[in-house]
Every structure is written in C-alpha cells, then in structure tokens.
C-alpha cells in the first residue's frame, strides 16, 4: 500500500499509518470502556508506546 506523506508542524508523517493507528486506538478504547482494565494514564502510555513502535518500524 502506497504511503501518503503529509506535513504536520513541519514534520513529515505517513497519514495512512496514522489512520491505521487511529483505528487501533479506537478499538482499544472501546474494549477498555467495557473492561475498565486501564486507567487514563495507563491508556495514554499504551498509545504513546504504540506510536513509537509503529513509527520506528517505518
């Protein structure tokens, strides 16, 4: 799948990758709303980790 580059705050990012991450975040949020497994800080840390892993893979 061809990546779509866009610039955010002067930094180039892959919009498709960001969209995919967004979908995963929503799914994770949906699950967490039901299970209450993680609190707000834990969820923010998980999203941060997800971003770093995804971006590094690139």
């Amino acid at each position: 799948m061809a990546s779509e580059k866009i610039e955010v705050n002067g930094v180039e990012i892959d919009a498709q990758k960001a969209q995919r991450m967004l979908q995963r975040i929503i799914v994770r949020e949906k699950t967490n709303i039901k299970t209450k497994q993680f609190n707000d800080t834990e969820m923010a840390r998980k999203i941060k980790k997800m971003i770093e892993e995804e971006v590094q893979c690139y």
């Binding site: 975040i25 949020e29 949906k30 707000d40 923010a44 840390r45 999203i47 941060k48 971003i51």
Partner: peptide
Amino acid sequence: LSAFQSALEHLGGRNSVIKMY
C-alpha cells in the same frame, strides 16, 4: 461517542500523549 471522547482525552487531554512528549 464515548470511545471518541476517551481517545481524544488520551491523545491531547491533561495526562495525554502530546503532553508527555
């Protein structure tokens, strides 16, 4: 719409990813 709200809070709210960065 609560999943949206939670995701927004976790990405850009008080104890959010952006704040951590």
